[in-house]
């Protein structure tokens, strides 16, 4: 379960501090997929960045399975994040000089997990890319890249899978196919997932939708 308590975040601007998130509170039960929607500049990406533990709030807490993400000592934060939170980007961010297999195995190698390549092979089979394992990102289509990215996100068996506009670079048909796979896998692995999207159709497929507007959450 993810619990967000009194979360606030502001940025300094030339005109003074700009409040992006104002005292936000919500919960995501384990195994649920929620969509966060909102206009550009509403604070969706800031919220996702805080959920990923890559930024710090001005105040408030994010509890993942009861552990306060920002109370973890700095030297352990990275390990915690690597083991429990995965990110999927609109532009996939695959490493161009690594093959699909090596891209998926990389987070496992970083965490020093046993048999990273066998696990990566299994995951690529799961996303239907068993015949594309030795291909480099430049040799894959957008949909295939995003499937590799999903497999990489699942590799470390995280508690939380965060996705930022996962269909933003894909056409409708491919986007739908990729997201069907995404939902299947998240449910199969019983992960908690947050998807930031503008896509109303995609948001409707999620278990619930949170709308961000003027720094506040509207259900």
């Amino acid at each position: 379960m993810i619990e967000i308590r009194n979360l606030s975040k502001s940025f300094k601007t030339q005109q003074g501090p700009l409040e992006i998130l104002k005292d936000i509170n919500f919960q995501i039960p384990k195994g649920k997929i929620i969509a966060i929607t909102g206009h550009s500049g509403s604070g969706k990406s800031t919220l996702l960045s805080l959920l990923a533990g890559l930024d710090k709030p001005d105040s408030g807490q994010i509890l993942i399975e009861g552990r306060d993400l920002f109370a973890i000592p700095p030297h352990k934060q990275n390990d915690f994040r690597a083991q429990n939170i995965s990110l999927i980007f609109q532009n996939y961010y695959l490493i161009p000089h690594l093959t699909a297999l090596e891209n998926v195995a990389l987070p496992l190698q970083i965490l020093k997990k046993a048999s990273p390549f066998e696990e990566a092979q299994r995951l690529l089979k799961e996303v239907g890319l068993e015949d594309r394992m030795s291909h480099y990102p430049g040799e894959l289509s957008g949909g295939e890249c995003q499937r590799v990215s999903i497999a990489r996100g699942l590799a470390t068996k995280p508690l939380v899978l965060l996705a930022d506009e996962p269909t933003g670079s894909l056409d409708n048909e491919t986007g739908n196919r990729v997201m069907k796979l995404y939902f299947d896998l998240v449910r199969k692995h019983n992960l908690t997932s947050v998807i930031v999207t503008h896509n109303e159709e995609l948001a409707a497929l999620c278990d619930s939708e949170l709308k961000l507007s003027q720094g506040q959450i509207h259900k």
């Binding site: 990923a52 890559l54 990275n78 390990d79 994040r81 690597a82 083991q83 990110l87 961010y93 490493i95 990389l106 987070p107 970083i110 965490l111 990489r152 470390t156």
Partner: peptide, 15 residues
């Protein structure tokens, strides 16, 4: 960009 990505994937500063 690669440094940021490695960080997101769990790479510690030392590594």
């Amino acid at each position: 960009t690669e440094i940021h990505l490695l960080k997101v994937l769990g790479g510690a500063l030392k590594s």
